[in-house]
Simulated scan of single mutants.
Amino acid sequence: MMKQYRVQNDGSGKRIDKLLTFIEPNVSRSEIQSWIKQGHVTVNDSVVKANYKCVEGDTIAWTIPEKQTLTIKAEHLPLEIVYEDDDIIVINKPRGMVVHPSSGHTSGTLVNALLYHCHSGLSTLSGEERAGIVHRIDKDTSGLLVVAKTNEAHRELQKQFKNRQVKRNYEAIVHGVISHDHGLIDAPIGRDPKQRQNMAVVDDGRHAVTHFRVIKRYGEFTHIECQLETGRTHQIRVHMKYINHPIVGDPKYGPRKPFVKFGQVLHARSLEFTHPITEEHLSFESDLPGDFHGVLNRLNKMT
């Protein structure tokens, strides 16, 4: 499908990749840059580079390439299974594992591993690429998540998440010393208008609430527990940055010079919900991973 846009005065001087992210708000900047690189975008009938500065009166034309359907393969990958029955499976996800396949991660994901392990199959409500996935945690966040094997279980779990009946507690280490023992962050989250691949607190964002309490204070850091009331993308990471206490090691929202380099020190510690079929109350806990303990030991030695 071919689209066209005539650059107005307010678009003059802007890079073409940045301008197109505002014109196409549902497309990431990296994807738009790939369109430009592949020649799907022209300015005044000429192919340009992503850093081209637009001029008032320019005619931008672009073709949205058809998305290729991913072939999701079952893969024999290690899984730490906390609980499993015919309807659901609870996984303790390691840091570094992506939850489901995407254009940048077609293998090695949790879904690839689950397709191999669950011979009876996974729920299909979220599509093939997100088979069984009811909720997600980021690639470099470790910890617990529940996966649905059947569509009936998936629907019931979705209702519980929507009605805020699922309890999710995380632990994190953040920059700075939080002076108060408890806190609540109620701030809407949406796409960052300046960096479309990031999320941010924005006026027209989706309602987001995070509760936190201090576990221990260190010289320049604080170990905290967070409880999610809502489940927005990067919610804890964005909210902690918003109150000027970004999570240690966070490559997107933390300081440019990281205290650790393996990713955000964030762990999904506990998970509570009602079994979607039997209605039994289920509660699970996951120990902090070794790298998290390593940061705590490092902080103890510094104080």
Score class of each variant (00 low, 15 high):
N44G: 10
R15I: 07
I16A: 08
S126D: 08
K53E: 12
G39A: 10
V111H: 08
L19F: 15
V41R: 08
D10S: 10
K18V: 12
G96W: 02
S102R: 04
S30R: 15
D87S: 11
I91K: 06
I16F: 05
V27E: 14
T69V: 13
E66Q: 14
P65A: 07
I60Q: 07
L122F: 00
L110W: 00
Y83N: 00
G57P: 09
I89S: 02
G11W: 11
G96Q: 02
D87T: 01
V27M: 12
N92S: 11
N51C: 06
E84T: 07
T21S: 15
G39H: 09
G104E: 10
K93A: 04
F22M: 12
A61E: 15
I91Q: 03
I36K: 11
H105F: 03
S123V: 00
S102P: 09
G104F: 06
R15E: 01
T21Y: 06
F22E: 14
S126E: 12
V43I: 14
G104V: 09
I81A: 01
V41A: 05
P101I: 03
N112Q: 09
V98A: 12
L115I: 03
H105G: 03
V90N: 05
T106H: 10
F22Y: 12
L70V: 02
E75V: 05
A61F: 09
I16D: 10
T42V: 13
